[in-house]
Every structure is written in structure tokens, then in C-alpha cells.
């Protein structure tokens, strides 16, 4: 028995934000860490991740001719900046699509590689024979919610995040198997990316929106970590199958900036055409990046039956990394 990725649907906010929305244009132009995007999507005020998931899940179930009430045993979600602080949105999604699953898990960590971690959770439930099918819902919501605000859009970093959503349907079957998965955690790096809300904690009353801060003193080390961790994961999943990285037909990684994308394909000896991304139009989609690019690449028929597809990435300042290989049948 294997876990199969049956289908995947992306759902993007219709609000397109161009580069001129953001401040510090000069810094963005001169600093390559903050450049390379033409536009990105932003959630509007009041919009919910659960709504986007609901629409994507309904489209997916209709396309597969499945009944949400019967054909989903498990709902898994990851939302970068959640709709609600306490409750998670998995149960809300279930309500909106008319599902009645045995299990719902809202997972908050593993950022840009959350799709892979949630695939592993689904696989584990399936191996334990607790479920036969699952939807995996990935959302990046921090762009509109944080960087669409008046006081934060002036920052150079504000142009980099973009919002996006994807829902994948997986089953316990050999239909389109995930052949190899690898994971690693690096707790020593766990505090190098944090929310910055000045001298107030994020739950305390304050006048500013806040932003996301990487430890700038550790920029060199964070770049080095990402350069090493992601090719390492790609090599590991290939070695598990006695493959070389050059046997991969398509690679999809998280998309923090153009430098990382270049370095990862150089390290794995893949061409630019083989390394798929949506960075120019959607910017950094965090955990939604890998599934959104995968969904688009299937729809536009870039990925075709027979292709060996590798998914890989790292999260935050490199506290988690992961890789997976899927034979597209």
C-alpha cells in the first residue's frame, strides 16, 4: 500500500498587487534578496482561508466526481497566519464543503514544507488504517493580512510574500504513488525567524501591524543553511530509489527568492526549464508555494504522465527541511 496524490487544485485571490504598491523601491531594486517579482496576490480584508479552501475542495471533488460527505476521511490544514487564534480552520472547511470526517488536524509549523509534512501525516494515518482518503489544505495568508497594511507596505520585505491556496486529494492506493519522502529538523535554528511587533508581544494591544524578522546578523548562515539543506533532501529522496538528481524530470521547491532557486537547480544539475516556479507572478507563497506550482504545472500540461517529480524545500530560517518524489502516472 502506498499513498497517492490523486489531484490538486489551486485557488488564488483575485486581488493583484503590483510592485508600485510597496515602499523602499530603491532598496528593493538594489537588494537582490527583495527583488525578482512582478506581482503577487493579496487577500482582501475579512477574507478567510476556510473560504478559499472550501471553493478549491469543492472544485476538486466535482472534478473527481466524489462526494465530500463520503469520500474524505481526514482533513489536514496549514495556514501561515490563521483565520482564528484558537480553533484552526479544518472544522470550518469541513462544514463549508459538507464533509463529515473522522479526523481533522490543523498543523501550524513547518511553513514552506508543510505540504510534505502533511503528506507524511496522511500517509501515517493510512498505514495505521485509520483513514483511506484525505484532503490537504495549504494557505499562505500573511501577504494581505500583514503586508497589505498601510504601516507595513512601506518595508522592502513587504513585496516578497504573496497569498495563495491549494487543496490536494490523497488516497491509500498505488494510483500515483509518493515513492520516497525525507524529513529533517534543525531545532538550533528555530528562533532565527520571528514576528516583530516591537516591544509588544503579538497578543498585546499595540498600534502597529508588525512584520516578520529574520535575524539579519545570521543572513550569511541562513543562506548557507538553505543552500545545503534543500539539495541534501533532493539527493536523499533520489538515493532511496537508486536515482541520480539528473533523473528527475521536474523539481518544485519553495520559492523564497531567485538566488535560492538558482542555487538549488545548480546543485542538483537541473535546468531552469526543469525547475518549476511561480515566483514572478505569485512571489513567495510560503507553504502554498509547492502545491500551487504543482497544481498549475499539471493544469498547463508541463508535468505529463511518466514524469518523475521532486518536491523539496526548507522552512523559515531552516528549522525544517523535506523532500518527496512522485511518479506522475
Amino acid at each position: 500500500m502506498n499513498i497517492s496524490l490523486i489531484d490538486i487544485e489551486e485557488n488564488m485571490p483575485d486581488q493583484i498587487i503590483g510592485n508600485d504598491f510597496f515602499g523602499e523601491e530603491e532598496i528593493r531594486r538594489r537588494n537582490r534578496m527583495f527583488s525578482g517579482t512582478s506581482e503577487r496576490r493579496h487577500l482582501r480584508k475579512g477574507e478567510l482561508a476556510s473560504d478559499y479552501f472550501g471553493v478549491a475542495a469543492k472544485n476538486l471533488m466535482e472534478r473527481l466526481n466524489l462526494d465530500p460527505a463520503k469520500d474524505i476521511d481526514l482533513i489536514l490544514t496549514n495556514v501561515s497566519l490563521p483565520d482564528e487564534a484558537f480553533t484552526g480552520c479544518g472544522a470550518v472547511v469541513s462544514k463549508k464543503i459538507g464533509a463529515r470526517t473522522k479526523h481533522i488536524i490543523d498543523m501550524h509549523n513547518t511553513g514552506c514544507v508543510s505540504f510534505l509534512y502533511l503528506l507524511d501525516v496522511a500517509k501515517t494515518y493510512m498505514l495505521a488504517k485509520k483513514v483511506n482518503s484525505a484532503i490537504i489544505c495549504l494557505a499562505q495568508t500573511a501577504a494581505g493580512r500583514i503586508f497589505g497594511q498601510e504601516d507595513t507596505r512601506q518595508l522592502a520585505q513587504a513585496a516578497i510574500p504573496g497569498d495563495g491556496f491549494a487543496v490536494a486529494y490523497v488516497t491509500s492506493s498505488d494510483e500515483r504513488p509518493i515513492l520516497s519522502m525525507e524529513f529533517e529538523t534543525y531545532p538550533e535554528n528555530s528562533e532565527d525567524m520571528r514576528g516583530n511587533t516591537g516591544d509588544k508581544k503579538w497578543w498585546e494591544a499595540r498600534e502597529t501591524t508588525g512584520s516578520i524578522d529574520f535575524n539579519e546578523n545570521k543572513t550569511a548562515m541562513i543562506v548557507a543553511r538553505g543552500n545545503k539543506a534543500v539539495p541534501g533532501m533532493i539527493k536523499k529522496v533520489c538515493e532511496n530509489l537508486d536515482m541520480k538528481t539528473t533523473d528527475i524530470n521536474y523539481l518544485i521547491t519553495n520559492q523564497p527568492n531567485l538566488n535560492f532557486l538558482r542555487n538549488w537547480r545548480e546543485a542538483t544539475q537541473l535546468t531552469k526549464d526543469q525547475h518549476l516556479d511561480t515566483f514572478d507572478k505569485y512571489a513567495n507563497l510560503f507553504g502554498a508555494g509547492i502545491p500551487v506550482t504543482l497544481a498549475e504545472s499539471i493544469k498547463n500540461k508541463t508535468i505529463m504522465p511518466g514524469d518523475m517529480v521532486c518536491l523539496a524545500g526548507f522552512s523559515h530560517a531552516c528549522d525544517y527541511s523535506a523532500g518527496a518524489l512522485i511518479q506522475w502516472t
Binding site: 546578523n217 545570521k218 543572513t219 550569511a220 548562515m221 543562506v223 548557507a224
Partner: peptide, 10 residues
């Protein structure tokens, strides 16, 4: 002040 060695990778 960050330490000079934190930039070894650069």
C-alpha cells in the same frame, strides 16, 4: 554587534 565569524559563509 554580530561576530565576524557569523559571516564566514559570505
Amino acid at each position: 554587534r554580530p561576530w565576524v565569524g557569523d559571516f564566514w559563509d559570505f
